[in-house]
Amino acid sequence: MKKNIGMLLIVALLVIAVATYTKQQMAKDRELEINESLLGKAMDLNYKQTGLRKGDTPPDFTLTTVDGEEVTLSDYKGKKVILNFWASWCPPCKAEMPHMQKYYEKKAKEQNFEILAVNLTSEEKGDRLVEKFLQSYGITFPVPMDEDGSLAKTYQVITIPSTFILNTDGQIEHSIIGPMNEDLLETYVEGIN
């Protein structure tokens, strides 16, 4: 009898897999129906929003970068955006920076994305620190400064590094906590439109 235990397990697991998949698809169809039967955005009121979720358009902002230029999030529609929140006292944020820079240099044009690395300036000990850090790492993407910490609050960024990946329509596709290397960044960015 022992011979068949593994086989039975496999068949049982396959049945579970198919059932799960069918259930998922049915749930998705139902959601679509509901969305179609209600008028567009009115639907949003029915969801209890806790933080930013997939498919949300995050609040727009205009900030000044370390280089003194103004950036507005909505200007980047048509491009994918990697919206990163960081501070120079945070070791994983620092570790992530060179990876973002490398990926930016190699693939930003080809894969149509921009990196906005929002610095939590209100939590920094001095402006020079950020500038020095960026110089020593040769960072070339825009680093907007969240001087009063209000943007981090709006985006409910608690742990850093936090990263939002937005699609070309400016909607959130992924929210990620923790540092990412080049490979992971590319995997996430390539998988969206």
Partner: peptide, 10 residues
């Protein structure tokens, strides 16, 4: 600390 945060990727 890179060793802690990252892996070898692909």
């Amino acid at each position: 600390l890179t060793i802690l945060y990252f892996n070898g990727g692909k």
